[in-house]
Design a protein around this nucleic acid. Structure first.
Length: 288
DNA sequence: TTTAATGT
């Protein structure tokens, strides 16, 4: 009788030890994953990964790590709230042929490549095809065609004004400064009714789009644009300059959470165009 | 320098 009780107790002890070892292994593996993931994210962002100022259902998002860029994906708005990437000067910039749009299976909702069909909106890249492909290669280029990198854009914005801005960034600013951190994304209407109803299928339609350019360094400089959906397309780019503070107020995001307060004030409070040579490129004609 | 994308 006593021998049998001892056998049972021993079996339980062995089970407990086995469970403990498994739990320890899982904890260590999760810790290693977390540490490595944080390193990889930090390598794709300047002064910290963009996050919300206050956590609400509309500001909640999760970070999708792609080849060459990060996406702050919202399953509530069914949009990227921001994308973040680095561009640097390359010898012979060129991109392969456009690989075609793909569903992103990490998204909660089924957003297929044809889900904008007949809506009157373009599948607008946030992380751009050409610049990402030229700097980060063809695997990164394929990732820019994931539907998690798209937001509904009016054709006159996407193909004209926004395209001109993307071209100036890659062809003028990147060679001029060597390295550029870019954060870009949509701005949504304040009206809850629009948030719920103004959608292409499941995808909420933004009212505007922002793009932030930062030249990293001891004394970083930044330029920020806010462009509405309805544009003619041939406007001067400097018509759309805003401060980063204004974009943080409109989006509820903190774009550079590790930037010290004094540096943030210097960089974000005012529109400062000195040194960018914007006047020379603000009216360059579109490609299409 | 076809770096945007639709609809056929």
């Amino acid at each position: 009788m006593a021998a049998r009780r001892r056998r049972v107790a021993n079996r339980w002890r062995r089970q407990a030890r086995r469970f403990g070892i498994t739990a320890l292994f899982v904890a260590v593996a999760a810790g290693l994953w977390h540490f490595q993931e944080r390193e990889l994210r930090d390598g794709l962002s300047w002064q910290g990964v963009t996050t919300w100022q206050e956590l609400t259902p509309l500001s909640f998002h999760r970070v999708l790590r792609n080849d060459g860029f990060l996406v702050g994906w919202s399953d509530v708005r069914v949009n990227p709230l921001w994308v973040s990437y680095l561009l640097h000067d390359v010898e012979d910039p060129n991109a392969g042929p456009r690989p075609g749009f793909q569903r992103d299976w990490r998204a909660l909702w089924p957003i297929s490549p044809d889900s904008y069909f007949g809506s009157g909106y373009d599948r607008g890249h946030l992380a751009p095809n050409y610049a990402i492909a030229a700097v980060h290669g063809s695997a990164a280029q394929r990732d820019t065609f994931l539907m998690s990198n798209m937001s509904p854009q009016r054709p006159d914005l996407n193909r004209r004004l926004w395209q001109r801005l993307e071209e100036v960034v890659m062809d003028r600013f990147v060679p001029r400064f060597g390295t550029l951190q870019v954060i870009t994304g949509p701005v949504f209407p304040a009206s809850f009714r629009d948030n719920v109803l103004n959608r292409v299928g499941l995808v909420e339609v933004p009212e505007a789009f922002y793009k932030i350019l930062v030249v990293p360094g001891e004394e970083p400089r930044a330029l920020a644009f806010l462009m509405p959906q309805r544009v003619a397309g041939d406007e001067s780019l400097d018509d759309f300059l805003v401060s980063i503070d204004e974009l943080e107020a409109r989006t509820g995001l903190d774009f550079f959470p590790q930037l010290p307060e004094a540096a943030a004030v210097a960089l974000e409070a005012e529109v400062e165009t000195a040194g960018w040579g914007l006047e020379a490129v603000a009216r360059l004609p579109g490609r299409f």
